[in-house]
């Protein structure tokens, strides 16, 4: 059986850890590669680097950054943020990223998912979805809506429909990010995660809301997620990756323990 995965997400701007993450002590984690290397040695199963750069120059810095990560981190990692074309995806893949994440650009132009999947393989194509809870209505029957542009622009798209559509278009994996749970530290959106995980045949990474190790156990058991994504609880130093993995292991969740 495959193990459940612990995934850590790092926001990067111009090759530096972004200020948008409210770290206790920014001096300690100004270098995302050093931080990533620390998580790698501490047993994280996969890393996500989210590029919040807007400019073209920033894109080139990101390619160099990915090459540097690939020479220091010997586990799979993905890169997301602002990927708008097959060329963007292919460059990142060639620089050493195992997978790429598409989000807003795929909502705006669905074929992007198929194009990237054809170019670098479905297994390397992740569809990230930012989702918020709404009152169910004829347009959004599942009661969860896709939001884009960093989770601020509603789209009127039903999240369950989009997850299935993403799979059909060729995505090999989904990130389910709950905008409502994000930052609350009160746990993942279990209902949302399970609803989508049960509706698709591709792996699902749950994101948003992790505050305690129990939350990770919940989302990979009750939530049916294949992986749990965390950010601030390890960036702040509240928990180490090792502690989270040990907790999962002690609760009977199959995770990689020898690393």
């Amino acid at each position: 059986m495959l193990s459940k995965r612990l995934v850590v997400c790092l926001d990067v701007r111009g090759g530096k850890l972004a200020k948008s993450i409210k770290f206790v002590d920014t001096r300690d984690i100004g270098d995302p590669i050093a931080k990533a290397r620390q998580y790698y040695e501490d047993g994280v199963d996969e890393l996500v680097f989210y590029d919040i750069t807007a400019s073209r120059e920033g894109r080139d810095i990101m390619i160099n950054f990915v090459e540097e990560v690939a020479s220091q981190i010997f586990i799979p990692f993905s890169v997301g943020g602002g990927i708008r074309s097959v060329e963007d995806a292919t460059r990142l893949r060639n620089a050493g990223a195992e997978k790429v994440n598409v989000n807003t650009a795929a909502v705006k132009r669905r074929e992007l998912i198929s194009e990237i999947a054809r170019a670098i393989g479905a297994q390397s194509t992740i569809l990230s979805m930012d989702i918020r809870k709404v009152t169910p209505n004829p347009d959004i029957p599942c009661g969860y809506e896709i939001v884009v542009n960093g989770g601020v622009t509603p789209t009127g798209i039903d999240a369950l429909w989009w997850a299935r559509e993403g799979e059909k278009l060729g995505a090999g994996e989904l990130v389910i990010n709950s905008i409502d749970a994000d930052g609350t530290k009160e746990g993942y959106e279990i209902n949302l995660t399970r609803m989508i995980a049960d509706a698709v045949t591709i792996p699902v990474i749950a994101s948003g809301g992790a505050g305690k190790p129990e939350h990770l156990v919940e989302v990979v058991t009750e939530g049916h997620a294949d992986a749990a994504l965390v950010a601030s609880i390890v960036h702040y130093g509240e928990y180490t990756c090792r502690q989270l993995k040990e907790y999962l292991h002690d609760r009977g969740v199959k995770v990689r323990m020898n690393y």
């Binding site: 495959l2 193990s3 995965r5 199963d45 591709i202 294949d226």
Partner: peptide
Amino acid sequence: LKIPHMGWN
């Protein structure tokens, strides 16, 4: 069980 077999085993 999904195909591809992808992840840690």
